[in-house]
Amino acid sequence: MQEETATDGIVTLSEVKRTYYLGEPVHALDEVSLSLPEGSFTAVMGPSGSGKSTLMNMVGCLDTPDDGTVTVNGQDVGALSDGKRARLRGSELGFIFQQFNLLPRLTAAENVTLPMVFQNVVGESRRDRAKTLLTRVGLGDRLDHTPPELSGGQRQRVAIARALVNEPSVILADEPTGNLDTETGSEIMELFAELHDDGSTILMVTHERHIAEHADRIIHLVDGQIEEIEHVTENPPVQGSETA
């Protein structure tokens, strides 16, 4: 079993324990230590119940450890109040979900800038920001469309733009291609590759090997422990792209 020492890195987990009590104690995370260096692209794989989601929630500041520490951009997540953690989520983290999770009654532009609303950013700059980001994900002409008017791939692109809006330290992706067909999934992975090239730090949970191979390294979780950290030497070519 390999472990990394949690010293530097934009996100660090140090001997993190999280136990759920569902009749009997379940060790969702059992003394996990991990560091995400700035600009890294990490995939997490493992069977269901291995602790992938819990790890994601820890890094995403949605959950706090029973024991051990999680830091995001130098801040000890467990020590923060509920409200401060929410603010930290908004400013340091960008979430991308399998279900896209856009607000159905807001337009694409409004969905993208929703995290800015909770950071009290106001004014015209918001619309410009939405336009820039939606253009970057290829939806520059869909600003005022609502999610029901968009395809699955387009919705995920809006979600990616939303994740980028506050220039987060880390982008968290939970099965980002899980609800998309293979071709659309490849296009989304191409976008991830671009983000990675531009220097974003990415943590992605997936159960698909070929998706995980887009990352620099793959963390294999089993029973709440890191079984193996696999370094990916060669990323698979992304369909229709020479850059990946």
Binding site: G60, L62, D82, G83, A86, R87, R89, G90, S91, F95, F97, N101, L102, L103, L114, P115, F118, Q119, R162, N166
Partner: peptide, 12 residues
């Protein structure tokens, strides 16, 4: 849940 994930506090 989504709003909380993107930074909404309880008071929001």
């Amino acid at each position: 849940g989504v709003m909380k994930a993107v930074g909404a506090r309880k008071r929001d």
